[in-house]
């Protein structure tokens, strides 16, 4: 019989799943909490750049789609917080860590959405990159995280498609619409590449996470996969990827591309992106404005419970 940590390692080695009450190394637990929380924070902060355009969506059909998409992101944040909670933390505490800046979210959401085409670009590029990142997480060694990701990936399958459809419509529309689409690609291309994190040579957490089956592929591998997938789609749209160094390598079957400027990524992560303060302030305000509502609901539940006890006695 394998007890405790031996059983943990045996399960990992056999590509099995670790479940909430299993023994696990403290490092594994902490890494997961950090990663799942960060993922959840990204979902709920990610509601803002897109939510910014719900009121201005240029057709009612687009408005409905965008509302459903932003709503999904709230749901995905919720699934992920619940997955983190199976590791013995509370959502309220994780939110506090987000609000006080002690836990991060994906830096992509610190860029502004300036035109309607940005909604297309986010769906196509940002959700596209997220899918490349997330699909391997459906096989993550931690069961609740993997299950949450299966649900997220299933629901997100429409997100990327709707973004591409927005851009496709713009690219086949008026010259002003096409220019809007190109401008969005120009601004979102580099931040999208940064979504895969620092290059492998500089990535601090990767090796251990790979050994634990939390991470399945390296940052650079996933970035390459994203570029290979995206460039032909840009061709279909008739848009130009803003990378002079982009070329197809017949021999490897992969695109060669210019690495993004990672000093910008580090700057944004540190809090100096165009929207860091705005995003966090909005989130904190919603949370603080809602405090009296949550308190009221708890007070009511308490009153109802004691009334029931009173009548049962």
């Amino acid at each position: 019989m394998l007890a405790g940590m031996d059983s943990f390692q045996a399960t990992i080695d056999a590509d099995g799943r670790i479940e909430p009450r299993d023994a696990m190394p403290e490092g594994y637990r902490k890494t997961l909490i950090r990663q799942i929380a960060q993922h959840a924070h990204s979902e709920i902060i990610g509601m803002q750049p897109e939510g910014n355009w719900i009121s201005r969506a240029p057709s009612l059909r687009r408005k409905a789609i965008l509302m459903a998409k932003v709503q999904d992101e709230a749901g995905h944040g919720l699934y992920l917080y619940a997955a983190a909670e199976t590791l013995g933390v509370d959502r309220a505490d994780l939110l506090d860590l987000l609000h006080s800046g002690r836990q991060k979210y994906s830096s992509i959401f610190n860029y502004p959405t300036l035109t309607w085409a940005d909604i297309g670009a986010i769906g196509w590029l940002v959700d596209g990159a997220a899918i490349v990142n997330q699909v391997p997480l459906c096989r993550c060694s931690y069961g609740p995280y993997a299950r949450a990701m299966v649900r997220v990936c299933k629901e997100e399958s429409f997100h990327q498609r709707q973004g591409f459809e927005i851009l496709h419509t713009l690219c086949n529309g008026t010259p002003a619409q096409k220019a809007m689409a190109q401008d969005a690609l120009d601004r979102w291309w580099w931040p999208s590449l940064m979504m895969f994190g620092p290059p492998d040579s500089a990535s601090t957490h990767s090796e251990q996470s790979m050994a634990w089956g939390i991470k399945r592929h390296s940052n650079d591998e996933l970035r390459q996969r994203f570029v290979d997938m995206t460039v032909p789609q840009a061709d279909v749209l008739g848009l130009k990827v803003p990378d002079e160094g982009l070329s197809y390598d017949e021999e490897t079957g992969h695109y060669r591309f210019t690495e993004p400027d990672y000093t910008e990524l580090y700057d944004v992560v540190k809090g100096n992106g165009p929207c860091n303060q705005q995003r966090l302030a909005h989130r904190v305000k919603a949370h603080e404005d809602g405090a009296w509502v949550r308190e009221a609901a708890a007070a009511y539940a308490g009153k109802q419970a004691s009334r029931r006890e009173g009548s049962a006695a």
Partner: peptide, 8 residues
């Protein structure tokens, strides 16, 4: 299918 928070 999952979990959520609610007061009651």
């Amino acid at each position: 299918v999952g979990s959520l928070h609610a007061p009651d």
